[in-house]
Write a protein that binds this DNA or RNA. Structure first.
Lengths: 333, 333
DNA sequence: CGCGCCGCAGGAAACGTTTCCTCACCCGGT
DNA sequence: ACCGGGTGAGGAAACGTTTCCTGCGGCGCG
């Protein structure tokens, strides 16, 4: 029976190597104050028993779990998936694990989920929380160390975000330059901070270009929302529609095309996020490319720094790039 | 200062309530052997101090962490994302947390990642592992309790899987009934067990229908792979292409359409998985709908049962449903 | 040759819980 | 009135580590 049926503990290794518990611990942790010959013997014993220190016991005494938690509003959202992916990869490279929590877009869950998740980990990544600002500020104090993604706060925590305002502005500029003067914005989740940023960009643009009308129609965040908005879009007489995100744009595009509307000849459509699928729609979708994976990576870096130094870096703002593809074209084409 | 700066421990609560540690523990865990009046006092003290038992210490003595780990081959794959989502939701409902690990399709990582993740959790969900069968079998013994998704094993572990073989067969039958006789299968990752199942389905079909030729062309699993396969597909003279998954199908469809090929009139294309986007391509993609979220949910149930009873249920096979949409049509249309 | 310092290993405390075990007390029965 | 059983609380062990502290032995220096 070379395979130990129960958990093999440090005591077993100590017994086998004929040393004390302390020595085993020191040897295995590379403490230089241990005699090389003893260290060797301990290593051998540990290897033979396939011993690995219990992360649990280790965490308890060390006060750190080598794990962080991430709370996202919707695991089904490609952007959050990509952030999660980048985050997990980056954290993994530094030997950290990632615990996930999905609030499923229900605001009331966010707080408890965050606190709960934080308690079993060393830090928390709060991803685009939907809760109101005052609640968020209060929460941030409770769950530190925490880094905030796509939200801001007075509370001094690291922030990593995409500049949704500038990005939407570049999209609006883009269709404006194509000659469009009647635009439509399909607003997404109103609780979403990034939606507010987009609305701000629209307000900016209106101020700069009084000759342009931009209507806003409430909408959801997924395919079906875009599809259902098709009627409203067509009725509006707009020549260009800016969707809250790529999913909405795709739902819209798919639906209007089925009704014989040509994109972009009859209607220009732009998305947002640049999810992987965006370049493969037909026509390929013009969109603002949000570097989601990069956001995840940066969020980890900020967390790592926070965990190591305790340092809170300056807010990091990533600028999405305008991806002009074929779903937008000249007005009245 | 009502907010405790450091961690408040059970001793603090005990002191405040004027009872012993044991009593606090019992009271907070609802042990009926504690005097109601004392229990009340303890509850109050705990509430005032905002005390919550340290999950770490709790885990150490209880021997369970209320956390499971899931290992996926690629967090960027929509199917695994959806499985993860379903799994996380189901586990969450039962008070369990989920730790993620992404092997990023590198087989060598799977083993260490699994063992590492398993050590900090109560159980492991192995999702479509790419490693060879013998290695898998060996690993399963090490990381129990474990449930296997989309793979099988001699080792008695719970298995949840989709019937890829039957599903692909129904797709082939579908295009056959549409009159196609020259087919093409775009094979995905050869390490993937589900790819083997698909090949088996093709072999079955060939046996049943000697009049049909089904070529296989090696391919990847993503958009670009599908796009790059376009040449080979068009050269082959096939009238219907069955892609490894929806991503490949979409890449292929997007590319061939850009070259003036009409889908499905000139070429029928079918995908696999029914990712959310599949119904929004143009034309909407015929595919086999793999209930990924359901797989995740069932995987958790199997794990829950394993954790509770120690019982290993019979392998659970979910049958994907054929989703006939508009990317497939009559041959020679 | 003796004293003090240093290197290194072992014992024990600590991390924060849960739970077993012991014991005090109260009540009822004889 | 005494004794036994049952109820409920406190003390202590245990979970598996790390690390502080103590002490032993050897070596260098005076």
């Amino acid at each position: 029976m070379p395979r130990p049926p129960k958990g093999v503990t440090i005591a077993d290794v100590a017994a086998r190597a004929g040393v004390s518990l302390s020595t085993v611990s020191r040897a295995l942790n590379g403490n230089p104050t241990v005699d090389p010959v003893l260290a060797e013997r301990v290593q051998a014993a540990a290897a033979e028993l396939q011993y690995t220190a219990s992360p649990l016991a280790r965490s308890l005494v060390l006060g750190r779990t080598q794990t962080i938690a991430v709370v996202v509003p919707d695991l089904g959202n490609p952007t959050f998936q990509e952030i999660l992916r980048g985050l997990n990869a980056a954290a993994g490279r530094d030997g950290y694990h990632v615990l996930i929590a999905d609030s499923a877009e229900v605001v009331a869950e966010e707080r408890v989920l965050s606190i709960e998740a934080r308690r079993r980990t060393d830090g928390l990544i709060l991803c685009a929380p939907r809760m109101p600002q005052d609640q968020l500020d209060a929460l941030l104090l409770l769950v530190a160390p925490v880094v905030l993604v796509n939200r801001e706060s007075e509370v001094p925590v690291p922030v990593v975000r995409a500049d949704y305002r500038a990005a939407l502005r570049s999209l609006v500029d883009h269709v404006y330059e194509l000659g469009h003067r009647r635009l439509l914005y399909l607003a997404g989740i109103s609780r979403s901070a990034s939606n507010a940023s987009r609305l701000a960009a629209i307000a900016d643009f209106r101020r700069d270009h009084p000759d342009v009308t931009i209507d806003e129609v409430p909408c959801g965040v997924d395919f079906d929302s875009g599809a259902q908005a098709a009627d409203a879009v067509l009725r509006s007489g707009a020549t260009a529609a800016l969707a809250f995100n790529d999913l909405v744009a795709m739902g819209l595009m798919s639906t209007v095309e089925r009704r014989g509307v040509r994109v972009p000849d009859d209607l220009s459509i732009a998305g947002f996020d640049d999810i992987p699928f965006a370049r493969y729609t037909s026509p390929p979708l013009t969109t603002a490319s949000v570097p989601a994976g990069e956001i995840g990576t940066r969020a980890w870096r900020a967390m790592d720094q926070l965990l190591t130094d305790g340092t809170v870096g300056a807010p990091l703002t990533l600028l999405p790039s305008l991806e002009v593809r074929e779903s937008t074209g000249p007005a009245g084409g």
